[in-house]
Design a protein around this nucleic acid. Structure first.
Length: 604
DNA sequence: CTAGCGTCA
DNA sequence: TTCTTGACGCTAG
């Protein structure tokens, strides 16, 4: 029914029905007539309304029976109601206002009565709810609701495929029991055939969710689903509704400085090349370097590009050519500055809306259980400051070196401060725990007087820990992970800047010192071979089909992925646990009014 | 080594 | 011409 046509009494009745409902299945309908259940979700179209299937009877959520193939829409929905909530209002009509209030009441009730709300892409649903009814429905109330998202369930069962759409999900989960016969519904609730179609989809969605819930339980994924992933939906929805202020003036200023520097570098390049050319074009650069200057004749062979079979102008090549001519160095700096400008400065500016940014979080975007973000990818914003030479033409010809720290562009609200809470060396700790390696455990048992990678670096390089530089520490860190996850000696040598012999010696000594780590990796690979999948601490799974492949390359990659998943996936488990716990304590606390902005593994 | 995203050629 | 892909840059361990 379309609730706009209800009288007072009927409205009261509907609210009562909602209070006693056993489940809600919802989908947003967009301006262009598409819904959340259409294959291509266009977020350019604004939300027109919400279709809700109110279920009065449900199959038990906790122990769903195998979905019977005969189960059809009209077989079991005598008491179910399909309602349409219009959420767009043209003007500030009085009539519309009362309508808005009533819709708000219904939505509030749906969230409040702790009955499962099933939605494909539930995060988007909650976010629009917060956007439209932000004044009536606070994020704390959203936090109390019980939402289920079948897409996340499907991802948990197989994190390698991300299920692009509702239709894909249905196809995947009903090819086995594809007896969903087309039902002509004569309930007469909706005049519009489009919404009946949506109703049918919602019914399918419900059944899919029930099936998925069953699968999750069978596979031991139910706990991860309920305690980590479901609460996280709400957290991410709240995170996306909060915005971070960005210093636009500073951003524009640095964009100009970087632009000036690029112009200078371009001119310098033209000067030393003796001609004008497009510095961003690798083909033109190749012409200058090899056909005009013939630098390849002065040094060892230049690697060729894969497809075109022409001389490469990659960073590695330019590094080798540095001593032969001034041009390569200029190009290298140009590329670095260009990268900074386009990604961290201009890129951030394009993400801005009214001086603020807010990332979109993807819960099902990784195979390891970690989160990913985009527009901007806030997790990928450079941590380290970059030095840029700024030439001051105004006050004479002084040169000034300025440093750009991309993270300083974010500013906290007045009276608030960003708080970063970071697990220290979480993957290494997990590795120590899972392998029970005595040496590794010993490292963590001592109080944290010195940083673990600093200690490691001092051991490795044979220098006192006070002399270990930040760069040494970073190198030691990368190296440890490389070795743990099965890097070859060539790759490690490249990473360390040493000979392959030294690298292989280091791998040997690492394995010698941390014997149980090696045992652990062997064991997880072995278990993966037997079961076909690996499991994290909280029971998150990753099937690895190639673990028994004939092809050496594929098989060894699967082996590295297996080890990596157990550690990285477990780290993701713990980080998500932390997010959920922090969120709940903020929600129930009357004093903590903090607005959460949580980076994957850090919280600002 | 393993995960991502953004920017090009 | 526009759209897609693989390399490389950064991030997180």
């Amino acid at each position: 029914c379309d609730i706009r046509n209800l009288g007072y009494e009927e409205k009261r009745e509907l609210l009562a029905t909602i209070k006693q409902a056993r489940a809600f299945i919802t989908a947003m309908v967009f301006q262009d007539g598409s819904s959340q259940l259409n294959s291509e979700q266009v977020l350019t179209s604004s939300v027109k309304g919400i279709v809700v299937l109110v279920k009065s009877q449900t199959k038990c959520l906790c122990s769903p029976s195998n979905s019977s193939p005969a189960y059809t829409w009209d077989a079991c929905n005598q008491n179910d109601k399909l309602i349409y909530l219009k959420t767009e209002w043209s003007a500030l009509w009085k009539q519309e206002d009362t309508h808005k209030k009533y819709v708000g009441q219904i939505l509030f009730q749906m969230l409040h009565c702790k009955v499962p709300v099933i939605c494909f892409n539930a995060k988007d649903f909650l976010r629009t709810l917060l956007a439209v009814y932000g004044s009536e429905i606070s994020w704390k109330q959203v936090a109390d609701s019980v939402v289920l998202d079948p897409r996340i369930a499907a991802w948990l069962i197989n994190p390698s495929d991300t299920v692009p759409s509702f239709e894909c999900l249905i196809q995947k989960y009903f090819e086995k029991s594809f007896s969903m016969r087309k039902v002509s519904t004569n309930t007469g609730f909706l005049r519009n055939a489009l919404y009946q179609n949506v109703g049918l989809h919602l019914e399918k969605l419900y059944n899919a969710m029930m099936d998925l819930a069953h699968d999750l339980q069978v596979q031991g994924l139910w706990k991860v689903f309920c305690t980590l992933e479901l609460p996280l939906i709400k957290i991410l929805a709240v995170m996306e509704t909060h915005k971070i202020h960005v210093n636009k003036q500073e951003l524009k200023k640095t964009s100009e400085i970087l632009g000036m520097r690029l112009k200078e570098l371009e001119q310098e390049a033209h000067q030393v090349a003796g001609e004008q050319f497009l510095v961003t074009s690798s083909s033109q650069l190749r012409e200058v370097l090899f056909e005009k200057l013939k630098l390849h004749t002065l040094c060892e062979k230049i690697p060729k590009t894969e497809i075109q079979q022409v001389e490469s102008t990659s960073e590695a090549v330019l590094n080798k050519l540095q001593d032969l001519h001034p041009l390569p160095k200029i190009i290298l700096e140009y590329r670095q500055v260009h990268k900074i400008k386009s990604t961290y400065v201009d890129g951030l500016l394009t993400c801005m809306k009214k001086g603020f940014i807010s990332s979109t979080w993807n819960q099902t975007g990784t195979a390891t259980g970690r989160l990913s973000a985009k527009h901007p990818n806030i997790q990928g914003i450079s941590k380290h400051p970059v030095r840029i030479i700024k030439k001051q033409y105004i006050k004479g010809k002084e040169e000034e070196i300025i440093t750009i720290s991309p993270r300083t562009f974010f500013v906290s609200n007045k009276g608030y401060t960003f708080l970063a809470a970071d697990f220290s060396h979480i993957e290494l700790r997990i590795l120590a725990d899972l392998s029970s390696d005595p040496e590794l455990l010993k490292l963590f048992q001592e109080p944290e007087t010195t940083d673990i990678f600093t200690t490691l670096a001092s051991q490795w390089k044979g220098i006192p820990s006070e002399q270990v530089k930040q760069a040494d520490r970073e190198q030691a860190k990368r190296m440890v992970y490389s070795v743990v996850y099965g890097a070859g000696k060539e790759r490690l040598a490249e990473c360390l800047g040493t000979t392959t012999l030294q690298a292989s010696q280091f791998i040997d000594s690492f394995m010698q010192k941390y014997k149980k780590v090696h045992e652990f990796t062997k064991m997880t690979i072995e278990q993966c071979r037997n079961k076909g999948y690996v499991v994290s601490i909280m029971g998150r799974k990753r099937p690895l089909a190639n673990i028994n492949a004939q092809d050496y390359k594929l098989r060894t990659q699967a082996e590295r992925q297996a080890v990596n998943f157990v550690v990285q996936g477990s780290a993701a488990d713990l980080c998500k646990m932390a997010m959920v716990e922090i969120f709940t304590s903020v929600v129930i606390s009357p004093t903590l009014t903090a607005r959460l902005v949580i980076n994957d593994y850090k919280m600002f």
